[in-house]
């Protein structure tokens, strides 16, 4: 069977360089977990990797693990103090190497009152919009991003809709809404 994902055996040099990196494998796909302090080094490493240069940043997204008790995450149960847990959010990067047709997924955690991680815009221009989207949806700040503002929601919007503590029906209308059954104009 063809291989499309970089598994542990393919990248011994990565684990030499990042001995603290966690690694799990699910459904034939790797989950490489590193602390967020190592991100700059990691971006350098993958962008200029000799064998599998990751020239395309496919996607960045985040997962809010508030009120969850699975995966490798600590038990966050939605209590008040969990709102500012240091490991509340996972930021998930998908990289793709066009020349060698290999992919890898890297995960890092952040949290606290003002979660922030390093922006990858200096390495990949693709980060421009997707990091803005993650900021918009999760409120995770990307340091060194040139223009971190909302992209999908509007500027007046308060809160970050994809966080688990944001209600599904938390509408914030920009115009005064009519009541179609009463008003007649």
């Amino acid at each position: 069977m063809e291989k499309y994902w970089l598994l542990k055996d393919d990248i011994p040099d990565f684990f030499e360089k990042f001995p603290h990196a966690g690694y799990t494998e699910q459904f034939g796909q790797p989950n490489v977990r590193i602390p967020k302090e190592d991100l700059a080094e990691l971006f350098d490493f993958w962008k200029n990797h000799s064998k599998y240069p990751m020239d395309m940043l496919l996607d960045i997204t985040a997962v809010d693990y508030l009120s969850s008790d699975f995966a490798e995450k600590p038990n966050l149960t939605g209590r008040e103090e969990d709102l500012y847990s240091e490991t509340r959010f996972d930021v998930v990067y998908h990289f793709y190497s066009v020349s060698t047709n290999r992919r890898i997924r890297v995960i890092t955690s952040c949290g606290g009152e003002h979660p922030e991680v390093l922006s990858s815009y200096a390495w990949w221009k693709a980060a421009y919009y997707i990091e803005r989207e993650v900021w918009d949806m999760f409120g995770i700040k990307f340091t060194n991003h040139p223009e971190l503002r909302r992209v999908l929601m509007y500027e007046e919007f308060e809160g970050h809709p994809l966080r688990k503590d944001y209600p599904l029906m938390g509408e914030q209308p920009r115009v005064k809404l009519r009541n179609p059954e009463q008003e007649n104009d």
Partner: peptide
Amino acid sequence: YRNYAVVQGADRVIPV
């Protein structure tokens, strides 16, 4: 789309 982003009917903005 019953969620935070969508107006529940255009008639809540203008008469239809």
